[in-house]
Design a protein around this nucleic acid. Sequence first.
DNA 1: AATGAATGAGGATTCATTCAT
DNA 2: TATGAATGAATCCTCATTCAT
Lengths: 211, 211, 211, 211
Amino acid sequence: MELQLVEKKLPEKIEAMYKAVQELIEEGADVNRIKVSEITQKAGIGKGTAYEYFSNKEELISSALLYQMNLIYGQLEAQIAKMKSFEESIRFVLSSIVEKIGQRDCFLRYVHIFTDNGPISETMKQKIKEQKEPDTCLALDCIRQMVQIGKHTGEISARLPEAYIYMEVLSKVIGFAIYLTGEWDVEECDREEMQELICMSLKREFSEKKL
Amino acid sequence: MELQLVEKKLPEKIEAMYKAVQELIEEGADVNRIKVSEITQKAGIGKGTAYEYFSNKEELISSALLYQMNLIYGQLEAQIAKMKSFEESIRFVLSSIVEKIGQRDCFLRYVHIFTDNGPISETMKQKIKEQKEPDTCLALDCIRQMVQIGKHTGEISARLPEAYIYMEVLSKVIGFAIYLTGEWDVEECDREEMQELICMSLKREFSEKKL
Amino acid sequence: MELQLVEKKLPEKIEAMYKAVQELIEEGADVNRIKVSEITQKAGIGKGTAYEYFSNKEELISSALLYQMNLIYGQLEAQIAKMKSFEESIRFVLSSIVEKIGQRDCFLRYVHIFTDNGPISETMKQKIKEQKEPDTCLALDCIRQMVQIGKHTGEISARLPEAYIYMEVLSKVIGFAIYLTGEWDVEECDREEMQELICMSLKREFSEKKL
Amino acid sequence: MELQLVEKKLPEKIEAMYKAVQELIEEGADVNRIKVSEITQKAGIGKGTAYEYFSNKEELISSALLYQMNLIYGQLEAQIAKMKSFEESIRFVLSSIVEKIGQRDCFLRYVHIFTDNGPISETMKQKIKEQKEPDTCLALDCIRQMVQIGKHTGEISARLPEAYIYMEVLSKVIGFAIYLTGEWDVEECDREEMQELICMSLKREFSEKKL
DNA sequence: AATGAATGAGGATTCATTCAT
DNA sequence: TATGAATGAATCCTCATTCAT
């Protein structure tokens, strides 16, 4: 129930640097252009200190991002765990996106990882693959959680392939996030209506009778 | 009918540079790390020449990318225009993705633009907004085309909000592309089956009776 | 006869850098502490230019040193070539040292190469070994020249092992150079007398009757 | 008779650091590139501790080197003191070089001091000049010892200038050391033969009748 | 118009030294 | 006294951009 309790405390300086990276990104910085000096300055520490904790810039920034993702998705997963139905969980996730979208990316950052070929993203992917951070909690873990609930309540048919279900949820969520960024020139539809449509669509799609 | 005919011929040097950028990206280069010298060398021209045609690196690369996107989506749109039904078009699009996914991004590159905060992406967004390239043909134009056909044939209900339809198609396509990259650890499902499921899902979802 | 004529002209900027390195060393700089910025500044060129010609600092400085050595020893060898006897040549070499000793090292720099383990010396050794500079003319080539003359005139007995002769000449020359630096607290002996003693010693030592 | 007895015991930490420096050099480290952190780590003490005993890195390393030289040459001198003739002593010295040459430099390090312009060498020279370490025992002291014996036994003529004798011995020893490093491309001669030739040469050269 | 040699601002990284504990 | 975390000056190297030819 108290998932955060286990949260091992980060060394003070590392925490300051992670926070600095987060803030820089929220300020709209390009992940690949962040300077070590910017981070340490914002963290209120000396430039050399960064290298006491990380072997290089990529290691520093990718660690910060991974930590941040872990936190975001971890909290999301914890809250999803409390949900009683798949429908509740998807509604919750969409609302979360609406809340967070102002603070830049969040979910879209995840997409970016799979799209970008920059050194930092590469380092992140590497780290995830090597399971260096074994308890890393990413978007997929959240979706896995949601699907489990849905299967348990019977909202999600056992006949649909897992991969399809995951992809369907992930793409809807990404689509919604893109929609929220408002970079369209289509006649917009009401945000609430959009959320509702997405929920209904998923519900109907995953239900037993459909096939 | 002959959409490409209008295609104004690019100056030889520019074409060489555009081609070089495309090749570099296909070779896996990170858009934000491409060097001017790499481009001009691959293009077989002098470094200074790049600055005869573009005011700076961002202008050069973003123009090349935009040109490329314009080409890809233009061709796609042209072929969609020949289609007789929405279903045919979505099947065609998914197949195209399968074909192209090997040559790095394509569709995912588009997503990247909306996710990345780097100077090149910023320049691209700027350009699209300022309509500097008025006949730019992006993913949305393709979807618009498809939706038009669908509405005409009655496959797409007029009662659904346009924005929702667009988002739904876009997110499914993105989702499929991500699925194809294979960066999952879910039990995979057959590619053909996945394509079929996506088509059926969209078809059912957009049909009149559904609501 | 005209050995210098072949001397391929160095690119202007490289020459300037080589000259700058030489000057810095004559000013007493430590080879391993010379900064790229010092060199380029003294050479009156931009810092980046150094990297147009050399891949890194070590490459730059070691090339400059090698060039310098090649020049010094090349000239020495050319002059030795004109000598009629071993005695004349050794007298000439010792005089040269007296003349040059004021301008830091010269001969002693050669010794330093075999003693130092720094990155620049390593690069030099590497280069000499790889024969990258095939016409490199070092101390040993000069001595070889001298010994050849000595054997021709009969001043140097054929019964003595080559290695011993080389070592004997080299060590005497080094010893004389060390003596000239004056870092002794022995009762000094006259420089002229010292030169004379060395010559006589070598002459007697290498002569036939001795053994 | 018991020269080592006087040896004042070094503070434990200093001894550890001196030992660390020696080991690093034996491992092939470049004197000018040794890091304080390497020394203290190898010595098993805290980095700050180095600065409790030495005002800076140069002071630390040059002291360590000087101590080491003092030890090496001190032992050598003590053993030379027991010798009955100059010939015995020079044979002994050459054998010592053969033994030690594997552990990097030794004698050649001394040469390096007079060749190098780096901060550490400068500090060493300074120290020797200022007699900060009054009982410093260097190569020259060993040679002085040898010459004294030789003059006593009559092996070394009184008519030869002291400086010449010193230089002659020193240069032969250096030459032999260089020969042992094997960085020649001359046809090698047998090590034993080389030693013998050097001994005979010195013996004959310094003998009364010669002049 | 085309070139590419030259430039130097900019940023990552190292490591001697300090100082609070 | 001993420590080692923190520091930031120092320096190498990159690469977009300029400009003389």
